[in-house]
Design a protein around this nucleic acid. Structure first.
Length: 583
RNA sequence: CGGGGCGUAGCUCAGUCCGGCUAGAGCGCCUGGUUUGGGACCAGGAGGACGCAGGUUCGAAUCCUGUCGCCCCGACCA
């Protein structure tokens, strides 16, 4: 359904006949600015943890975002359809994602093999669209094609938080493209680029200060995934970038330049020291008086069923996404204590690389240049000092397997900076994972059968609304980008019992509506302060103030929310000024 | 799932430790009046039985047990 946002059609959108509930006080359990302001401005109302009603004002913004997304998707050649939120679990079983998604997949509860027990609420729609593709798309002549929908998604998030930034029910635009090949005309790369470009247009039009970053692309590798991020402290991802913008990636993916060898060639001898009860980097660091950066952290994993040890510096964290790629494994789980004892012959907390030759070890690049390091001795209650890679243990595999940290440099040598951010969109080259699992194949010119090559592209609509607020607000309230504001103009009629005020207001309102501008007419019989505070709070970009005081001087005022600048104009000039400000 | 916090009026909160008048305040809401360019003032009024269920007690918002919900930190996040 098209987003028809304007009141339009001669209906005046009067405040007194609409439904707006603002609040002076901030509800105590809202922490991040977007959540606080969405509640105070009366955009949303929480129903249960992770699920919100969009009140009329909030819905208008959401619909405007929807409209922009729909326009740009259509422009990019994607075709809209609508899939159900209820899915038969069988489709999820075909791709193995019932297990893969675990508790995130919301399931209905029924008795035994009741239909309810065979039904899930869709967290995403790869399975459904691939089912459709395998039924309807049989020939190369039908490809490429891109289907999209705007649909409610359900996820059993363990911890909903930050208002609408992380919820169990949310609105998502998801698109799925199907191709005969990866490269060349009509291929996945081309379709992916088209979506990438469409996303840039969408976020720009929504007024979001976004950054497109390389994201972890899982087992497919290459340049197969980008995330669109908006910087905000309310976010839960980390954006890593260089100051000059020459490199940007999410933390999972961000590559760091090698650390150089700062040793002086005079390595100490290795020494066994007692460290009873000290099992963490922090404890040992304190006990022995050595910086965490002088320690080697030894983490044991089970990777595709086999033990795997990762070595990183004590002040670094293993990046499991990187480790998976480097190790070329699909699954990576922390080893359980029994396995650790078995491999190291020590209690948990005393593992180290020295003497562990029978296990695959991958060292972080920074470990290879360490000198006189401290690490576990593979003997309960003991650590080793003076440990030197190469001399005391062999490094067969070394790579970048850790998270970037402040102080690191990008591969191009520029210093990396870190910012919290929220992901608002993700484009992904899926390849044939789903088409193979579900048998979605097409016939080529020669009549040979191939699995379709797929891409998928998601946008979180609610997150766009919240991210826009995160990015643009002040102490008084929201400052909407005009494109997604619930209304573009608020017409503030002071002295509503004055006939002239109302007739001038009415005229202005109707002119603007005829010009295609949606106007909220604040016709409440309220004191000016109340109306101004509310206008600021709900953040309408342009305010027109009509009062008897101004009219006595022959003027109305046009005020911009973002800078508070006031322009006194004759009523006849107001519309032109508003149009100018909104363009 | 671990750690912490909180459930009293539509909202913000006091009262809970040390059981005891008829459970309070501010905001919001209703009525009347005075006001009217940055969240006015006066007077009057409606509204909760204290998340829920047990228990202790002459008596429970307050103590005990259980349970549910919500928020925050962490873990997790196709």
């Amino acid at each position: 359904m098209p987003a028809s946002c304007g009141a339009g059609k001669g209906i005046r959108m009067r405040w007194t006949q609409f439904f707006i509930v603002t609040a002076k006080e901030t509800p105590s359990d809202a922490v991040v600015p977007s959540h606080q302001l969405m509640l105070r401005a009366g955009l949303i109302r929480q129903v249960v943890a992770g699920a919100y009603t969009y009140l009329p004002l909030g819905l208008r913004s959401l619909r405007k975002v929807e409209g922009i997304v729909r326009e740009e998707m259509n422009r990019a050649g994607a075709i809209e359809l609508h899939m159900p939120a209820m899915h038969p679990i069988e489709l999820w079983e075909q791709t193995g994602r019932v297990a893969a998604m675990g508790d995130v997949l919301l399931r209905l509860h029924g008795r035994g093999e009741d239909w309810r027990s065979r039904t899930v609420l869709g967290p995403t729609h790869e399975e459904i669209i691939t089912e459709h593709a395998r039924t309807y798309l049989n020939s190369y002549k039908q490809l490429p094609v891109n289907f999209y929908q705007i649909q409610t998604k359900f996820r059993g998030e363990a911890r909903p938080k930050s208002g609408v930034l992380r919820t169990r029910e949310f609105l998502m635009k998801d698109a799925y493209s199907f191709h005969t090949c990866k490269e060349g005309p009509g291929g996945l790369d081309e379709g992916y680029q088209a979506m990438y470009d469409a996303y840039c247009r969408i976020f720009s039009r929504c007024g979001l200060p976004y950054v497109a970053v390389e994201a972890d692309s899982g087992p497919i590798g290459g340049d197969a995934s980008h995330e669109f991020m908006v910087e905000t402290d309310a976010g839960e991802d980390f954006l890593v970038k260089t100051d000059d913008g020459s490199y940007a990636a999410n933390l999972e993916r961000a590559e760091v330049a090698s650390v150089t060898d700062a040793g002086d060639g005079r390595d100490e001898p290795i020494k066994l020291v007692p460290t009873p009860g000290h099992t963490t980097i922090e404890q040992v660091s304190t006990l022995l008086g050595c910086a965490p950066s002088k320690m080697i952290k030894t983490i044991l994993y089970v990777a595709d069923g086999a033990p795997l040890i990762a070595l990183v510096r004590g002040d670094h964290n293993v990046n499991e996404a990187k480790l998976k790629r480097v190790a070329r494994v699909l699954t990576l789980e922390p080893a359980d204590p029994a396995l650790i004892k078995n491999l190291t012959e020590a209690e948990v907390g005393y593992a180290g690389p020295v003497g562990l030759s029978n296990v695959r070890i991958i060292a972080d690049q920074a470990v290879t240049v360490m000198h006189d390091a401290v690490t576990g001795a593979n003997k309960t209650d003991h650590h080793l000092t003076g440990v030197n890679p190469g001399r005391d243990f062999e490094i067969r595999e070394a790579a970048d397997i850790r998270d970037a940290v402040p102080g690191d440099r990008a591969k191009n040598g520029r210093p990396l900076t870190f910012r919290k951010c929220i992901e608002v969109g993700h484009v992904f080259k899926l390849g044939t994972k789903y088409s193979v699992a579900m048998g979605a194949e097409f016939l080529d010119e020669k009549g040979a059968s191939h699995p379709m090559i797929m891409g998928c592209y998601g946008i979180g609509l609610n997150r766009i609304v919240a991210a826009a607020i995160e990015a643009s607000h002040d102490a008084n309230g929201i400052i909407w980008p005009a494109s997604i504001a619930p209304f573009r103009v608020i017409l503030c009629s002071l002295d509503v019992r004055e006939a002239e005020v109302m007739s001038v207001s009415r005229k202005l309102h109707d002119e603007l509506e005829s010009a295609g501008i949606d106007v909220l007419w604040d016709d409440r019989d309220q004191r000016p302060g109340v109306k101004f505070k509310d206008a600021d709070l709900i953040g309408i970009p342009v305010r027109i103030t009509v009062g008897k005081k101004g009219l006595a001087e022959g003027v109305v005022e046009v005020t911009t929310r973002k800078d508070g600048q006031v322009r006194k104009l004759a009523p006849e000039q107001a519309q032109a000024e508003v149009m100018r400000l909104l363009c």
